[in-house]
């Protein structure tokens, strides 16, 4: 099926191209909603559809005014500030604790490994609305509800499963005799970790960090409940904008977020290739 053989019948030919047409249609369905937002965000009018002048490629129909609004509107700026102060701290917390635990979990003899793994993965399993409800109830009891640290702790908890999964996956390919060799040459456990183990599992740690970052950066359900107006993040502001009155500024924000995800995706892809090369899994 990979290539059409020269002796294919008409039916086979028809199916070969028909199947590809179906695939193109599905891929179009996947990518079109994301692409369509980008030109719409440059609309000079406050419409959510293409105006006639836009379709005629009239330069006057395009403008940056929605971007200007994003960068000058205090609501959006506050949301942006909150997002960039919450996500990195939550990521740092998740990566530091998660990497340590992943190293522990990859030791050859860990008692209750299955149960511990299940507990550590659980924030990924439980639907967000349930986590949000529980955190709202519990954090208001202990006075964390509506505080910066409450949101950071909640987001770190949500990001940890991703760090655990990516780092333990990298540690599977890690040669433990390297640790013994380092110890043999007189390095202490801490020095061994930072000089020998860390550089080798770094791709896994970074991709775990990216997952944790995007989890926090895109998260809206938990922050809606655990946060208060002072912790309003970018997704929260978008959520309000979409629910109440949809303003075209959202399209500009969406385009910026798409650009960020393209960058993240590229970094992850490069990391994956590097990690495979390090482990000798692919010649490229």
């Amino acid at each position: 099926m990979a290539a059409l053989p020269p002796y294919a019948s008409t039916g086979q030919r028809l199916w070969y191209w028909g199947f590809r047409a179906i695939c193109v249609a599905v891929l179009f369905f996947l990518i079109m909603p994301i692409l369509v937002i980008i030109p719409l965000s440059f609309n000079a009018e406050n419409f959510f559809t293409f105006t006639k002048r836009m379709l005629a490629l009239n330069p006057e129909a395009y403008s940056l005014k929605h971007y200007q609004d994003f960068f000058s509107n205090p609501d959006w700026q506050q949301a942006l500030r909150n997002s960039v102060t919450i996500a990195p701290v939550a990521t740092l917390l998740a990566v530091a604790l998660g990497t340590l635990a992943a190293v522990g979990l990859s030791q050859p003899h860990v008692p209750f490994r299955g149960a511990i793994m299940a507990i550590l993965i659980s924030p990924m399993i439980v639907p967000l609305i349930i986590s949000a409800a529980g955190m709202y109830f519990f954090y208001s009891r202990i006075g964390l509800q509506g505080t910066y640290w409450g949101v950071v702790l909640a987001h770190a908890a949500l990001g940890i499963p991703f760090v655990i999964i990516t780092v333990t996956a990298t540690l599977v390919g890690f040669d433990r005799s390297l640790v013994r060799a380092a110890a043999n040459m007189g390095a202490g456990p801490v020095r061994t970790f930072f000089k020998v183990q860390m550089p080798l599992i770094l791709p896994g740690v970074i991709s775990g960090a990216l997952f944790a970052f995007i989890t926090s950066f895109d998260e809206v359900v938990v922050v809606l409940f655990v946060g208060s107006a002072a912790q309003k993040t970018l997704p929260w502001q978008m959520f309000i904008g979409l629910r109440e009155q949809i303003s075209p500024t959202i399209l500009a924000v969406a385009t910026i977020l798409i650009a960020i995800s393209v960058v993240l995706l590229t970094v992850l892809e490069l990391l994956r290739r590097r990690s495979e090369k390090l482990r000798g899994m692919s010649p490229g």
Binding site: L105, Q107, I119, S122, I130, S131, G134, A157
Partner: peptide, 25 residues
């Protein structure tokens, strides 16, 4: 013991930040 010590901080964190809220609910 060493393995458990490495896991303990995260386990404690998840219990406080996530499992106790679920139990509370």
């Amino acid at each position: 013991l060493r393995a458990l010590m490495l896991i303990a901080p995260l386990l404690a964190f998840i219990v406080i930040a996530f499992l106790m809220p679920i139990a509370d609910m």
